[in-house]
Computed example of a mutant assay.
Amino acid sequence: MAQQTTPVHSQWSHVGVLLRWLDLEQVEPVREVGMVRVLAIGTAYGAEAVKGVLGLSLGPAPTHLWDDAREAVADVVVAALIVLATIAGDPEIILAARLDEVAARVPAETDVLL
């Protein structure tokens, strides 16, 4: 059973633990590690789970639940955070800055602003 988490989660400390563990287990040359980890994002993106929920997989019935799709999408986020930590010295700062840039695209007159 998965450990319960709170909305304020120590995600970056977990990313650091995972990154150190992966670095200990790595067999690829150091310069290729980032590229290999980027490829991991593409293998985890969850399309099969969503297709399975919607009944679009081969076969007559749905093959996945929404919980499967949510876990698959979360796996993508974890993989992306690990890649960012691999290729960036300050992944927290880079992610926060990018999120600010993307959120700034919302027009000022929109009612969803903070």
Rank of each mutant, 00 (worst) to 15 (best):
A88E: 10
L84P: 02
W21K: 12
M1I: 01
L18R: 06
S13R: 13
A47R: 00
L113Y: 02
A88L: 06
R70P: 00
V8G: 02
A2S: 07
G42A: 11
L65Q: 15
D68E: 09
L18D: 12
A85D: 02
P60V: 09
G34F: 01
L18W: 05
I87P: 08
I87N: 02
M1Q: 06
G55C: 11
T43S: 15
A108L: 03
Q26H: 09
K51G: 05
Q11P: 00
E25H: 09
A97N: 09
V78F: 00
P91F: 12
S57D: 08
D23A: 14
D100Y: 03
E25K: 14
A72P: 11
E28Y: 12
V78T: 14
D68R: 01
L18Q: 09
V112Y: 08
R105W: 02
A103E: 03
E32L: 13
A44Q: 12
A79T: 06
L95C: 10
V30E: 15
T5E: 00
L113N: 10
A88M: 05
T86C: 05
G59T: 09
R70W: 13
W21M: 14
S10T: 09
I87R: 00
V8W: 05
P62Q: 07
V112T: 14
P62T: 02
T86R: 04
E48Y: 15
A40Y: 00
L22A: 14
L84N: 06
A49Q: 10
E101C: 03
R105L: 11
W66R: 06
T86Y: 03
A79K: 15
G59M: 10
A40M: 04
L58Y: 12
L84H: 03
A2D: 02
S10I: 03
R98Q: 12
P62M: 06
I82K: 04
L95K: 03
A61V: 08
A97M: 07
Q3Y: 11
L95F: 04
Q3R: 15
D68P: 06
Q26D: 08
Q3A: 10
V106P: 01
V77Q: 10
D90T: 08
M35T: 10
Q26T: 04
